[in-house]
């Protein structure tokens, strides 16, 4: 296991190097160049800008400097479009917000998903089972850029229980967390239900029951650990879905997070910012996936990594 983790960690720089390289060159081959939007920039200003971003140097020198800055100082360079701001500053501002959002959404998804799944599996074929599973299907099919606006319409515009936009108080955070968490809650509920039903049918649970253990103990102590395995394996891909989802959610609720910055930079063609955000997303994904794999290996002794 340790060897596996080490090997994955060793592979990490390679992955990131490739990611940096791809994004860097992709931005440079873009037709028109980064400043094509500023059509009537005076030549001397343009020269300044080019010097500042080393655009006057050959491509490989630019790449070398960019790489050196990223590796040695974690410096992602200045933003192309936000004057006087570095990519690092922008990311430092946005990332915590996105993390909070993701964290809240994950809490919502796991608590709701797992409890709904467990209850549905205990009361198999009850109205709760059918109801929650139908809602789950809906939650997985309706995209969050439909769910979010409808929640805004109902709870922020019509009933005014929550706020329409922003990220300061709790009233700002409820709707975004639900919007982002809903598809995962749905998927987790289904996975939990299926996993629990499978486990509950197995011998050791029947043994535990036969020993006269209380149903609650059986569920919590024995069934849950096995029943949640599929949920854990879903967390890996779920994470990347959540990142994509947070792009939309941050846009719906005008949350000043990393996703919003990414979209803005994409729309403005702010190349350094795009590269920086993509890189950060890449790091988060790779690290989180590793963690999920390790946790999975810990939970399921049948899995052997080598």
């Amino acid at each position: 296991m340790l060897r596996y983790i080490l090997r994955r960690l060793l592979g990490l720089p390679v992955v990131l190097l490739i990611l940096v390289t791809i994004t860097f060159f992709l931005a440079r081959v873009a037709p028109g160049g980064p400043f094509s939007a500023d059509k009537n920039v005076p030549p001397e200003i343009k020269a300044n800008i080019e010097a500042k971003y080393h655009l006057d140097k050959p491509l490989h020198v630019q790449y070398g400097r960019y790489l050196r800055d990223v590796v040695t100082r974690g410096d992602l360079g200045p933003s192309f479009k936000h004057k006087d701001q570095t990519v690092n500053e922008i990311i430092e501002r946005g990332l915590p917000v996105s993390f909070q959002l993701g964290f809240l959404a994950a809490i919502f998804a796991v608590t709701f998903g797992v409890s709904a799944g467990v209850i549905a599996s205990i009361r198999q074929n009850s109205w709760f089972d059918y109801g929650s599973m139908s809602v789950a299907v809906l939650g997985m099919t309706i995209p969050n850029f439909v769910v979010g606006p409808i929640l805004v319409l109902l709870f922020a515009r019509y009933w005014k229980v929550f706020n329409v936009a922003g990220w300061e108080e709790l009233k700002d955070m409820v709707l975004p967390a639900i919007t982002l968490g809903l598809p995962f809650a749905a998927r987790i509920a289904r996975l939990t239900r299926a996993g629990m039903l499978e486990i509950v049918g197995q011998d050791f649970i029947r043994t535990a029951r036969a020993k006269g253990l209380a149903e609650r103990v059986v569920i919590v102590r024995h069934a849950l650990k096995g029943g949640l395995l599929p949920v854990v394996s879903f967390l890996g891909p779920g994470l990347s879905y959540m990142m994509v989802g947070s792009l939309v959610v941050e846009r719906i609720f005008r949350i000043p997070g990393l996703g919003q910055e990414f979209i803005e930079s994409a729309l403005n063609r702010d190349y350094t910012l795009v590269n920086g955000t993509v890189l950060v997303y890449g790091v988060i994904l790779v690290v989180m996936n590793l963690i999920v794999d390790v946790v999975y290996g810990y939970l399921d002794p049948r899995i052997r990594y080598d």
Binding site: L19, V29, P31, M243, L247, A266, V278, Y281
Partner: peptide
């Protein structure tokens, strides 16, 4: 595989940013 470590929509967004 590495490119697709990134969520696929990011790749699409990148492409649309770069190529219009």
């Amino acid at each position: 595989d590495i490119i697709y470590t990134l969520p696929y929509m990011f790749v699409v967004i990148l492409l649309m940013v770069v190529f219009g």
